[in-house]
Write a protein that binds this DNA or RNA. Structure first.
Lengths: 331, 331
DNA sequence: TTGTACGCGTTATCAC
DNA sequence: GTGATAACGCGTACAA
């Protein structure tokens, strides 16, 4: 709780000198430096990050924000962990918020970020046209998008090659002989959904398979919608023999629906999910998934943010990481 | 980015008046109030949380810290979610940190909390004698412990009745006919470990079963130690017929070990874990666990913290929630 | 009822 | 080399 003032008094110097000892390697004669350092130790002085933040223009708060839909979703937890580790390594603290896939909550938290004068934020935008984020971008506070991209604003971005992941998933299903493949995607204005759908459609076309519109359903990334939509698909007169489900929670929901109908996976219906699941090996059956390198997404996003903070003029960069098809026993 | 200064200029009043309009319902004549409010709107004024924090003694930062071992552990993710929801409801922001069960990382982050002048923190202490937390408590910044308690300091605390949970788990196992029950606990200086071990021992004694020291192993709460210790137990000349594993990650590790040895659960070895697992129903086999109400732990902790912030003199409170034995198919 | 002025703890720019 | 001192944005005694 000791302030510069008190340290200065104890060391019988001015606060300017103390500050110099702390920050700049300005000219300070060894004796006074020693005296100051002793006072610093004796009082267990620690600079107030708050006062520092108030004084500085920006970029030195050593604080960044992370806004994600839900920390309980392992995909975002993994991203968060990547961000946090990179932040810790650079001695940055992290303001974490859960937006619940709600644009209003996201807007509220963006306000908090602004009011806290964070050095920058990391987030997956609500969708491609996210007005709250676009508006926030105008403040000049650095933004790094993860997972999902923005249509208008060009910001730093770390994403995964969703198109490729979808193509691989579909190629795998098709190689297994499936011709009627159901798609359960997320909200359709989200860039990841768009890309995965494109992969789905191109894969069908590439293998000379017809597109059946009724086999394509859009949910909201949550478990319940996976369950509901899987049931809808299975109620079709000509139901799909395989499901391509576009995120982890919806995959769990879809599997639950299959389970409840006593359908055997993969014999009756095969399933490929997007996003890996924790302890996938312990699941019944272990699901085949397109694994995203979520930890790296988070880590690299934070590193990009740090770069932008120190070098604001740098043109925005897009990092695209590769997903990986992990074949297990649901296909 | 507009400051009080600018709003005042625009409304042709002093900053004091603007501040009054914003904060206190002080006497401000309707006309000037209207003028100020218009200026506020026109400039899209938002108070700087940083400046406010610097000015105020404490308790009004609307910022709290949460330090947990690992956000990727679903138990802590659930607590975090509970804390965050309660914080959001009160318009508090959350500084989140992962301590990785490392006392040094915890100490580092406690420093950050102090430097950030948070209104309070929520955390499960490293162990009962956690010196870093004890030291932090001296700053007077409110602390609410969750999950684990402190031996010396008396702080607000939200915990689960671990003893009772352990007794129920053991009673269940014993009722199934098991007499050789292995215990895989966490670090032994942690309050939860102590209580669960006590439950294990008392259950044995209560049913007239002998204690075999070699059946009791202490790990570090992480998955790998669950695997290693399960293997050690199974390598015993007289191996246990059932395992009581004291947290979620170690349970997963233990199940993996059993799997790898091609042992059937529960036929060859039965398993009860502490902490529920996400998608437990989809696991093979769905594990019997002692479920902790983690979300409520987090929510109530945050609510306790808010109470303490507004009423610092209040004597510390302990809230003890009940766990629940969820019988599934690993026993 | 409203305005002036101070202080919160820093950093940085001047003088000396 | 070192020391005053002016910001940063806000809340609040105190004066008007």
């Amino acid at each position: 709780m000791a302030s510069l003032q008190e340290v200065a008094r104890r060391a019988k110097v001015s606060i300017a000198t103390v500050s110099r000892v702390l920050n700049r390697s300005d000219k300070v004669v060894p004796e006074t430096r020693a005296a100051v350092e002793q006072a610093l130790r004796e009082l267990d002085y620690r600079p107030s990050r708050v006062a520092r933040r108030l004084r500085m223009n920006s970029g030195r708060a050593h604080l960044v924000g992370l806004i994600i839909p839900d920390i309980q979703n392992p995909f975002y937890a993994e991203i968060a962990r990547g961000v946090e580790d990179a932040a810790y390594a650079a001695e940055y603290a992290l303001l974490l918020c859960n937006s619940d896939e709600s644009i209003d909550k996201e807007r509220f938290y963006l306000g908090v970020m602004r009011d806290e004068s964070v050095d920058g934020i990391v987030l997956p935008p609500f969708d491609e046209t996210d007005a709250a984020v676009a508006e926030f971008a105008k403040t000049g506070i650095p933004i790094v998008c993860v997972d999902r991209s923005l249509a208008q604003e060009k910001t730093d971005l770390v994403e995964v090659d969703n198109y490729r992941g979808a193509r691989e998933a579909m190629a795998h299903l098709i190689a297994k002989g499936h011709k009627q493949i159901g798609l359960i995607e997320g909200r359709s204005h989200v860039s990841t959904s768009r890309e995965r759908r494109r992969g789905y459609l191109d894969a069908l076309a590439g293998h000379g398979l017809p597109v059946r519109k009724e086999l394509m359903r859009a949910g909201d990334f949550k478990q319940e919608s996976g369950r509901v939509l899987a049931n809808e698909l299975l109620d079709l007169r000509k139901p799909p023999t395989a499901l391509f489900v576009c995120n982890n929670l919806m995959t769990v929901g879809a599997l639950a629906a299959l389970h409840q109908r006593d359908l055997r996976v993969p014999r009756d219906v095969a399933v490929v999910g997007f996003d890996d699941l924790p302890w996938a090996e312990a699941l019944d059956p272990p699901p085949t998934v397109v694994r995203q390198p979520a930890y790296d997404v988070g880590r690299q996003a934070m590193e990009l943010l740090l770069k932008r903070i120190t070098e604001p003029g740098r043109p925005p960069v897009t990092v695209r990481l590769l997903p990986e098809l992990v074949v297990r026993r649901s296909t």
